[in-house]
Amino acid sequence: DELVREILGRCTCPDQFPMIKVSEGKYRVGDSSLLIFVRVLRSHVMVRVGGGWDTLEHYLDKHDPCRC
Rank of each mutant, 00 (worst) to 15 (best):
G51Y: 08
G30Y: 03
V38D: 09
L34Y: 12
K21R: 13
V47D: 00
V40M: 09
E2S: 12
P14A: 11
I20G: 06
R39P: 03
V29Y: 06
D31H: 13
C13G: 04
D64W: 02
V40W: 04
L3R: 13
L8G: 02
T12D: 03
R67M: 01
C68Y: 14
M46A: 05
R67K: 05
D61K: 09
R5N: 15
H63E: 11
D15R: 13
H44W: 01
D64E: 04
R5M: 12
E57D: 09
R10M: 07
C11D: 02
S33H: 13
H58S: 14
H44I: 13
S43I: 06
Y27N: 05
C11G: 03
E6C: 04
H63Y: 11
C13H: 01
L60C: 01
V29F: 10
M19K: 06
M19H: 07
H58M: 06
K26W: 15
L41F: 10
M19F: 15
E24P: 09
D54H: 14
C11H: 00
Q16G: 11
P65E: 04
Q16P: 15
D15N: 14
L35P: 15
Y59L: 03
P14V: 09
H58N: 15
H58T: 09
H63F: 12
P18W: 02
V22R: 07
H63V: 12
Y59N: 00
L8I: 13
C13L: 03
E24T: 05
K21V: 03
C68W: 12
E57H: 04
Y27G: 01
K62S: 09
L34P: 14
K21E: 07
C66Q: 05
L8K: 00
L8R: 03
D54L: 07
Y27H: 08
S23E: 14
F17Q: 01
E24W: 07
L60G: 01
C13W: 01
D15L: 12
P18V: 07
G50P: 12
H58R: 11
V4D: 01
V38P: 08
C11V: 03
E2M: 09
S32T: 12
E6R: 10
L60K: 02
S43Q: 10
I7T: 07
D1F: 05
V22S: 02
V38L: 08
P65D: 03
V22N: 02
C66V: 00
G51D: 15
E24V: 06
V40S: 08
L56I: 06
D31P: 12
I36N: 04
L56Q: 00
G25P: 02
V49D: 15
L60R: 01
R39I: 08
S43N: 15
D31G: 12
P14S: 10
H63S: 06
M46E: 06
G50R: 10
H63A: 06
V45L: 08
V4H: 02
H63N: 11
V38Y: 04
S32P: 11
L3H: 08
R28T: 06
P14K: 13
W53R: 15
R67L: 04
Y59K: 03
S43R: 13
P14R: 10
Y27S: 02
L3N: 04
L34E: 15
D15A: 13
R28N: 02
L35A: 11
V22L: 08
H44G: 14
G51W: 06
G50W: 02
K26G: 05
E2P: 09
F37S: 15
L34D: 15
L34Q: 15
S43M: 07
K26A: 12
V38R: 03
M46C: 09
E24D: 14
M19N: 03
V47I: 08
C68P: 08
W53G: 14
G50I: 03
R5A: 14
R39Y: 08
Q16A: 09
H63T: 08
I7F: 04
T12E: 07
V40N: 13
Q16S: 10
G9N: 11
R48T: 05
M19Y: 07
Q16N: 04
V49F: 08
R5K: 14
K62W: 06
Y59D: 00
K26E: 07
R39C: 09
D64I: 03
Y59A: 01
S43L: 04
R42C: 10
I36A: 09
R28Y: 07
L41R: 13
L34S: 15
P14H: 08
S43A: 10
G30R: 08
F17D: 00
C11F: 02
K62C: 09
S33L: 10
D61Q: 11
M46P: 06
L3Y: 09
R42N: 15
S33P: 13
K26L: 10
S33E: 15
L3S: 06
V29R: 08
R42L: 05
Y27I: 08
C11L: 01
V45P: 10
T12F: 02
D64C: 08
E57Y: 02
R48P: 05
V38F: 02
R42E: 11
G52Y: 14
R5S: 14
P14D: 12
R39M: 10
I7K: 07
V29Q: 06
K26T: 15
G25D: 12
P65R: 05
S32W: 01
G25R: 08
T55V: 03
V4S: 02
D64V: 01
I20M: 12
V22W: 00
R10Q: 11
V49E: 15
C66Y: 05
S32C: 07
V49S: 12
L34N: 14
S33N: 14
L8Q: 08
L60N: 01
T55Q: 06
S32Y: 06
S23K: 08
I7H: 06
I20Q: 13
T12N: 07
G9E: 13
P65C: 02
R28V: 10
E57V: 03
R48L: 06
H44C: 10
R28E: 06
C66F: 01
I20H: 15
G51P: 09
E6A: 11
R42Q: 13
Q16E: 07
D54G: 15
F17A: 00
P14I: 08
V47E: 00
L3W: 04
G51T: 13
Y27K: 05
R42S: 10
V38Q: 02
C66R: 03
S43V: 05
I7M: 09
T12Q: 10
R5E: 14
F17S: 01
L41K: 10
R10V: 03
L60D: 05
S43Y: 07
V22T: 04
T55E: 05
G25F: 07
P18C: 06
L35W: 04
R28G: 01
T55G: 02
S33M: 11
L60V: 04
R10S: 08
K62I: 11
G50E: 13
E6I: 06
K21G: 04
V49I: 11
E24S: 09
L35V: 12
V22M: 09
I36T: 08
S23P: 01
E2K: 13
R67I: 04
M19A: 05
G51H: 13
C13D: 03
C11Y: 01
V45S: 01
I7D: 04
G50Y: 06
I7Y: 08
V47Y: 07
G9W: 04
V22G: 01
